[in-house]
Design a protein around this nucleic acid. Structure first.
Lengths: 152, 152
DNA sequence: CTTAATGCAAAAATTTTGCATGATT
DNA sequence: AATCATGCAAAATTTTTGCATTAAG
């Protein structure tokens, strides 16, 4: 079963209509698992093969996809709001791990679940029950680390 | 030495002029260590005792404060960009830990440095050198956890 | 006195909304 | 046929910029 079929299913299940625009927007997001697209970028990509789409539809569909937890809003501190397809097929928590290179801007996504120990500690000491987390790690990617070592 | 005096020092050291507006904006941010203020909120708070200030000055000063690493921009996924005074007196890295209660909206700031082990692992396995991180943990605070347990 | 900062208003940039038209169920 | 979604344009936000005036060094 393709992403689109699954998505159509979900739309129907939620009493929403299955439209070309919605399918294409999800396709674009699913087709760029590594990129983190802004609303404008999604609009341009969909428009390339579906020129009549409007930006408002993109925003409205993004909202639906967020509500359905099919995509996530991320903020990489580059001044834009970005969206990415959810990595959480099945489980619905613990995602959003990004390595952001402050030299070349490269973004590496991690799915590793490494915060469980910390979350236990927080529950024990503060009584706060963690259900999800978002982690951004800033630094220098392999290439830029090499570059730095060369210079210094 | 007060925050303002320190700040004035830093401004001078960077060839920037010490103005009332800049001092008051920092005062407001320093006076709300627990709140996470939007530009508009900062504007309103400063305006209360300095009515002639303009919003543009707030934005320009925020940019200076960010450049000087005296404040940090944070995004709590509530649709606003917020700013908070930096916790890093002395060291200049590893900050931004927030517990965000998805039930009552309470925000708890953590300064604990618990990711060092993970960062070592990332350096070893991916060659990525982490220099800073930003962590948001979503869940239920102590009170809302209690509330939940009562109901279920 | 020189340079930089301010306030205001206008302009960008981003996101939302109203409404007539068109597509889906 | 009824309802929901769309596109367009207008409106609402949020942030930035130009410029004459004011304040700081």
């Amino acid at each position: 079963m393709t992403d689109s079929q699954e998505f159509a299913e979900i739309l129907r299940k939620n009493g929403l209509k299955v439209t070309n625009q919605r399918l294409r927007i999800l396709e674009v997001l699913a087709g760029c698992p590594d990129r983190h697209l802004t609303a404008e970028e999604i609009y341009d990509l969909v428009k390339a093969e579906f020129p009549e789409i409007g930006l408002a539809t993109v925003y409205r569909t993004i909202q639906i996809l967020l509500d359905l937890h099919l995509i996530d809003r991320i903020n990489l501190d580059d001044g834009c709001v970005r969206y990415e397809i959810g990595q959480d097929k099945g489980r619905d928590r613990h995602h959003h791990h990004h390595l952001i290179c402050i030299s070349c801007g490269k973004i590496i996504s991690l799915e590793d679940d490494f915060l469980e120990q910390l979350e236990e500690h927080i529950r024990d000491s503060l009584g706060f029950t963690v259900t999800d987390h978002e982690v951004k790690l800033f630094g220098y990617c392999r290439d830029c680390t090499k570059e730095q070592n060369k210079v210094e």
